[in-house]
Amino acid sequence: MTSANASTATEPPSRLTAVVTGASSGIGRATAQRLVADGWQVLAVARREERLRALAEETGCAVLGVDITDDESVAALTARAHELFGGTLNAVVHVAGGALGVEPVAEADLEKWQGMYETNVLGALRVTRALLPALRRSGRGDVLFVTSVAAQEAYPGGSGYNAAKAGEHMLARTLRLELNGEQVRVIEIAPGLVRTEEFSLVRLGDQEAADAVYDGVEDPLTAEDCADVISYALNAPHHVNLDLVTVRPLAQAAAHRIARHHGV
């Protein structure tokens, strides 16, 4: 699915430029908003074009309907980024992805596993491969992956998401080695418990179950908290590389250990 619903500006950029995936909600949307506020030119992409249009009206960023699991759609993204930014690009922020289900390994749903791998790993790979030439040409490029503490710590019911995010983590680590000596940073931000409107709902398929994930947790992270960290990493002097930042709410000591308070 592709669309050219975007800002009409096509002049070469005078500011830092970024492509943000998964920008229709949650961390992706907050990141696009934050980078625009920081003065960046942003092309925000996701599958849900109606939400992107609302983001464009709010922030003035460019938008494009993109399915990162589809080669033709990513080719359209590459062409639009070239049109907007004159053939160079300063950052691609990989937020698109997510979790599906909490089945144990013995009851694994292979379709869900495949869906998680397609978005979190192959989608990030497809977009990176397509946009890396423009990042290299910029002389100041960043590839930023939003992974998860699930890439670092196994937990019951998390096996499919653990595996997918661990795969994305290794993609980032390998790419950093391969780009060593070039002016392209590879950054990984690994959030813990983040309360957004959709992550747990999509994973669990039920609003009551999604709400229970955060029940009794004092101040889980917000999408804006994660966008703050992403902004810091991208705006740091370019010789400073935040290889891996793990960010959790204070209430979370590990993926499976969260302080909960249920009143007196």
Rank of each mutant, 00 (worst) to 15 (best):
E188Q: 13
A255W: 01
R185I: 11
V202H: 15
L16M: 11
A75C: 00
P13R: 12
L52M: 07
G141T: 02
D109K: 05
A210F: 08
D219C: 13
V247Q: 14
G115R: 07
A259G: 13
G87A: 00
A190M: 10
L193V: 09
E118W: 01
V95A: 05
H239P: 06
S148G: 05
A62H: 15
G65E: 10
L35D: 12
H169M: 14
L84V: 06
T69D: 09
E103Y: 01
D70Y: 01
V20S: 04
E208K: 13
V127A: 05
L43S: 05
R129T: 06
T8P: 02
R195W: 03
R47Y: 08
E83R: 02
V194I: 11
V127F: 00
R129W: 04
R136Q: 07
W113V: 14
G167T: 10
A251E: 03
E208R: 15
T59I: 06
R34V: 08
P249M: 10
P13G: 11
I27Q: 00
G167P: 11
D142I: 01
D206M: 13
Q207R: 14
T88D: 07
G216N: 14
M1K: 13
Q183D: 05
P133N: 01
A150P: 07
T31A: 09
H262W: 02
A23L: 10
S73W: 01
P104Q: 04
Q207P: 08
A227N: 02
H261Q: 06
L177E: 10
F199L: 11
I258G: 08
L171H: 08
L55V: 07
G101M: 10
T222R: 03
A163L: 13
E118F: 04
T10W: 03
V105T: 13
A150C: 10
M170H: 11
T119L: 10
G181F: 04
L204P: 06
L242R: 12
A233T: 06
E153G: 15
T246M: 12
L135D: 00
R248D: 00
G160C: 07
S200L: 04
H238C: 00
P133G: 02
R195Q: 14
A124V: 00
F199P: 10
A151N: 13
H94L: 09
Q33P: 08
A233E: 11
T147P: 11
V95L: 03
V66H: 00
A54T: 11
R248P: 00
G87H: 00
I230R: 09
A54V: 03
A209W: 03
E224G: 00
L201Y: 13
H262I: 12
D219F: 12
L242H: 14
L221M: 05
G157M: 01
R136W: 06
L77A: 01
E103T: 08
R53H: 12
V66D: 00
H256F: 12
L100K: 15
A223V: 14
Y155P: 04
A227D: 06
A81E: 00
G160N: 10
